[in-house]
């Protein structure tokens, strides 16, 4: 564990806390893409199957359980909570996320570290995570105005990815055999997807104005 990875994990955790806080405090999930949240739940379920087969550390186990539980809780809230579900921007959240699932699963069948169920699901979760934010970004772009907590949620998610890239650079330099191409290339693609959002986030921060994404 290095400082970059810890910072990445913590900003990831923070993004989820911000999202839960927004939903809990405002009883509203407006601006949040249910499609993206469902993709994240699927990502965590597919990747953390190794909870049952490998033990890495107490930290690792706790974080995995937290990520699975929180992502399922968010999906539950958005779909079933009587107050929260009313604010869901269904008509704006029309990204065809099943194509992302299908496409990344086929990719995982072709590009994996080993042709076993667990390795295929792991690669699938990496590819799917890389594109899972797309429905969220499309929803934000469509709605134009982004409320503060939603903006911060996406910002922390992007920060988490940026820290992971620093972590890989650090590991590559310090661990002689650190080569994890699937995770690293997918991670760079994933971070690249945030570039546009980051650009407008910093502009609004610099001008001390409300975050607005161009149509």
């Amino acid at each position: 564990m290095n400082i970059f990875r810890l910072a990445g994990d913590m900003t990831h955790l923070l993004s989820i806390i911000v999202l839960l806080l927004k939903i809990y405090a405002t009883k509203s999930c407006s601006g949040i893409s249910l499609k993206t949240q469902e993709l994240y739940a699927l990502v965590f379920l597919a990747r953390y199957l190794d909870l049952f087969t490998d033990f890495i550390s107490v930290y690792n186990t706790i974080m995995k359980v937290v990520f699975i539980a929180s992502s399922l809780a968010i999906v539950w809230c958005m779909r079933l909570h009587p107050l929260v579900k009313r604010s869901y921007d269904k008509e704006l959240d029309t990204f065809r996320h099943y194509f992302l699932i299908g496409g990344t699963f086929v990719l995982a069948l072709v590009l994996n570290e080993k042709f076993t169920l667990q390795e295929i699901l792991w690669a699938f979760s990496i590819y799917l995570e890389a594109v899972a934010i797309l429905p969220q970004l499309v929803l934000l772009q469509r709605s134009g105005n982004v409320d503060n907590l939603t903006g911060q949620y996406v910002f922390f998610l992007g920060a988490y990815r940026a820290f992971y890239i620093l972590n890989w650079i650090y590991r590559y330099l310090t661990e002689p055999r650190f080569t994890r191409w699937i995770a690293c290339v997918s991670g760079i693609v994933q971070t690249g997807i945030y570039a546009d959002f980051f650009y407008y986030y910093f502009i609004s921060w610099k001008n001390n104005s409300k975050l607005k994404l161009p149509a």
């Binding site: 990875r5 490998d54 550390s57 974080m63 995995k64 792991w122 972590n167 661990e175 055999r177």
Partner: peptide, 10 residues
Amino acid sequence: AEADDTKDEL
């Protein structure tokens, strides 16, 4: 398996 085969990241 090599040491970096373990998927220690989240």
